[in-house]
């Protein structure tokens, strides 16, 4: 299990044990964390699982695919640390990961 902290826009923290193999998005959705909608269920088709990943974790969360880049390009409130959480696979190496949620997903 990897411990992942999801911080809602209003500061509410959810510290969850997420099974390796799931995505960071699935960890949130299956635990009903508000603020990650994931309309498309992980197909990288909607950009409603947008999160910010702290720089310290960037090398462990992997590269953005071209598809993810171009979806994020048009999402709201995008920052350099923006990721689509459906594209980040959880592994033991992500134990302790902290992701912050944007104000909204649409």
């Amino acid at each position: 299990m990897a411990k992942i902290t999801y911080i809602e826009f209003d500061g509410t923290e959810h510290v969850l044990d997420v099974k390796p193999g799931l995505t960071v998005m699935e960890g949130a959705v299956k635990n009903n964390v508000p603020g990650i909608d994931a309309d498309c269920g992980g197909a990288c088709a909607c950009a409603t699982c947008h999160v910010y990943v702290d720089d310290a974790w960037a090398d462990r969360t992997g590269e953005k695919s071209a598809m993810e880049e171009s979806m994020l390009d048009f999402a709201e409130n995008v920052e350099p640390t923006s990721r689509l959480s459906c594209q980040i696979k959880v592994s033991d190496a992500l134990d302790g990961l902290v992701v912050r949620l944007p104000e909204n997903q649409h």
Partner: peptide, 10 residues
């Protein structure tokens, strides 16, 4: 064509 989809939706 994600940019066309995303921008089109907006």
């Amino acid at each position: 064509a994600p940019p066309e989809f995303m921008a089109g939706k907006q």
